[in-house]
């Protein structure tokens, strides 16, 4: 893409010691985070942890008390117009002008950035699947359609950073799946950095390459989300569901098997799992199922945030 000036290795966005103090309360405390291109980065935290405030500061809706955000090398503080030029965003709900049609809304926002043709508007309308309804007034749209219109205005000017605040709010499962696939595609094929906030862990696990976890205004961890295939290559807890758990545990004593209600739990990698299975079958034990019990992000998240309520 022509206007991605930074090289692939360099982050598109750098949050540097971003701090927000309102009154005496420190809402965001020295947040430092890099967002690389071609990646979906999740921003995860319980409600009230400062996700939306951080996003508002990134797009200049709120002032930073301290620190700075660099987007494509430009400071949001000092060169706002340059910094925001390559950002597309939905902050909280995708509020549009309800008395205008979807198309008029897109036309409105397209006039604020140079070089967006009506052809490009048609293209994004097609992309988000609103072709049939684009000339209807926004007040007749469902929440899902508004969300898609919101995505359309955010990607219309081909941004290098796409920020979505709680994008799955109000979407049905099909809509969530569609959005998820689309965001991954944008990141992989167009090299866009996608920054998505959410308090829904399961959603983040499916959508993101990495998640940054925030709690009470502080960044507490950034971790890579592993795919199922990657997990299989590492040693993990594997549960064998069998008909005679006691026999299975005895048989697998050398694997330090533990007796569970439904069967035997062992720690094993991919190859070992296959061998254990053969052993069990060989001993005449019925194997009903083999499950990898990796610690879900949710468990890790709860551990880290001390089990504070999530929803």
């Amino acid at each position: 893409m022509a206007y991605v000036t930074v090289s692939d290795e360099q982050p598109i966005v750098r949050l540097q010691q971003v701090t927000k103090v309102i009154g005496r309360r420190t809402i965001i405390d020295g947040l430092t985070l890099d967002i690389p291109p071609a990646e979906v980065l999740g921003f995860l935290g319980p409600n009230g942890s400062g996700k939306t405030t951080t996003i508002r500061m990134m797009v200049g809706l709120m002032r930073m008390t301290k620190g700075d955000v660099l987007i494509g090398g430009h400071s949001v503080r000092d060169e706002y117009e340059k910094a925001i030029r390559h950002v597309g965003a939905i902050v909280e709900n995708p509020e549009m002008y309800k008395y205008m049609t979807g198309f008029q809304n897109l036309l409105h926002f397209s006039r604020m950035v140079p070089g967006i043709t009506t052809q490009r508007i048609d293209e994004v309308v097609q992309l988000v699947g609103l072709k049939e309804r684009i000339h209807d007034k926004v007040k007749t749209y469902s929440l899902g359609m508004r969300q898609r219109l919101g995505v359309a205005q955010a990607i219309m000017h081909k941004p290098s950073l796409l920020i979505l605040d709680e994008p799955t709010n109000g979407l049905d499962p099909a809509g969530i799946r569609e959005l998820r696939d689309y965001l991954r595609k944008l990141a992989k094929e167009e090299g866009i950095a996608v920054f998505v906030s959410s308090h829904l862990l399961s959603e983040m696990e499916l959508m993101c390459d990495r998640v940054a976890i925030i709690q009470a205004g502080k960044l507490i961890d950034v971790r890579i989300i592993q795919s199922a295939a990657q997990l299989a290559d590492t040693t993990g807890s594997v549960l064998f569901e069998v008909d005679r758990p006691d026999d299975a545990v005895a048989l697998l004593a050398k694997h330090e098997a533990a007796r569970m209600d439904e069967g035997a739990l062992v720690r094993a990698d991919r190859e070992t799992v296959a061998r254990i299975n053969a052993e069990l079958v060989g001993a005449g034990i019925q194997v009903y199922g083999i499950r990898v019990l990796n610690k879900s992000l949710e468990d890790q998240f709860l551990e880290m945030t001390g089990g504070s309520p999530l929803v």
Binding site: L61, E92, E95, Y97, K98, M112, V113
Partner: peptide
Amino acid sequence: SSGTIKLLLIRPWS
């Protein structure tokens, strides 16, 4: 009150 101000302000304009 409609919230559209957010989408209006995050454009390359002061």
